[in-house]
């Protein structure tokens, strides 16, 4: 029932006459997608990361460099970005989990990794330093640049479905169970024979690979990236907020979170024009949501169903 309703809702934007409404749907789906990516490691694995932008930026730079430096087709950016993001995730995961980092310590180390990547991309010739990379304009499906927002929406929606399937799989699979066991009680899970480093690293790699795809799509949509856009902490915070507000560790949470946060942001933006006032209101609403719904919006869903 829930699934049917969601499918219908997801398909509505294709029928919308207005490009800007499609675009809002696309941005919402995009937030939901990156929130879901974060959720895979952050929610199901309890690996609270403050630096998921490191994966986003990896994907963004992968597709940008592939095109401008090697002249390859941007569609190749999807597999290359996925692998690159996955490898970065695996590397960060292996190093951190081997060192036994968790909680705030893990969160901070991811933040630092994102910062290292930002500074590197800002200083290396290979990434054109602070100049950023401009993708040559060339609209066309073959070139992964869509003039019609519905096409972008379709791609983002596809990715969201993919990430949500991953989340659903985590919820049902043995791997997901091991991950959840580690999240709830590391010592007990390890006593039962769960390989901590391997399991957590795999989860982070999967999340990293998927997040990199978001970077690829972003680059192909806005055609310009620089170190701050790619690796800045704003993106990390957005992912974390979407997942946590929606309900970390639930399959539908990030989608609910993205919808709620976009409604708040868009509505406040269009009604108030004093600079700073709209985002301030956004912050207030955020506080209210945290206060009223400690388990995120998915928790509300559960509560309503039980009532």
């Amino acid at each position: 029932m829930k699934a049917v309703a969601l499918v219908v809702l997801a398909l509505v934007p294709f029928a919308l006459p207005s490009q800007s409404m499609v675009n809002i749907a696309m941005l919402t789906a995009f937030s939901a997608f990156i929130g879901q990516c974060w959720n895979i490691s952050g929610g199901f694995g309890g690996l609270t990361s403050f630096g998921h932008a490191v994966f986003f930026g990896t994907g963004a730079y992968a597709v940008a460099i592939l095109q401008t430096r090697y002249g390859l087709n941007p569609w190749l950016g999807l597999p290359v970005g996925f692998v690159a993001g996955g490898l970065v995730g695996a590397a960060i995961g292996a190093a951190s989990f081997r060192a036994g980092l968790r909680g705030s310590y893990f969160a901070l180390v991811t933040l630092a990794f994102a910062e290292v990547f930002r500074i590197l991309s800002n200083s290396l010739d290979f990434t054109r330093g602070g100049l950023g990379i401009n993708i040559p304009l060339g609209m066309g499906v073959g070139n992964f640049q869509f003039a019609d927002r519905r096409a972008t929406y379709a791609v983002v929606l596809g990715l969201l479905v993919l990430a949500t399937l991953c989340a659903a799989w985590l919820r049902r699979s043995r791997f997901g169970a091991r991950l959840a066991a580690l999240r709830e009680n590391e010592d007990a899970a390890q006593a039962l024979g769960v390989d901590l480093v391997r399991t957590k690293t795999l989860a982070l790699a999967l999340s990293g690979g998927l997040t990199a795809l978001a970077g690829v799509v972003y680059t192909q949509t806005y055609l310009y990236i620089d170190p701050t856009i790619a690796f800045g902490s704003e993106r990390s915070v957005e992912m974390l907020l979407v997942a946590m507000i929606g309900g970390a560790g639930t399959v539908w949470g990030p989608i609910l979170g993205a919808v709620a946060l976009h409604i708040v942001a868009d509505v406040s933006r269009s009604f108030i024009s004093t600079p700073g006032f709209a985002p301030m209101l956004y912050g207030v609403v955020l506080l209210v949501i945290i206060g009223v719904l400690p388990q995120g919006m998915a928790g509300l869903w559960e509560r309503l169903r039980r009532a």
């Binding site: 985002p279 301030m280 956004y282 912050g283 955020l286 506080l287 945290i290 206060g291």
Partner: peptide, 12 residues
């Protein structure tokens, strides 16, 4: 999350 929310409110 709450400290994050407070930061957003104060900054803006």
């Amino acid at each position: 999350l709450a400290t994050l929310g407070v930061a957003v409110v104060l900054d803006n």
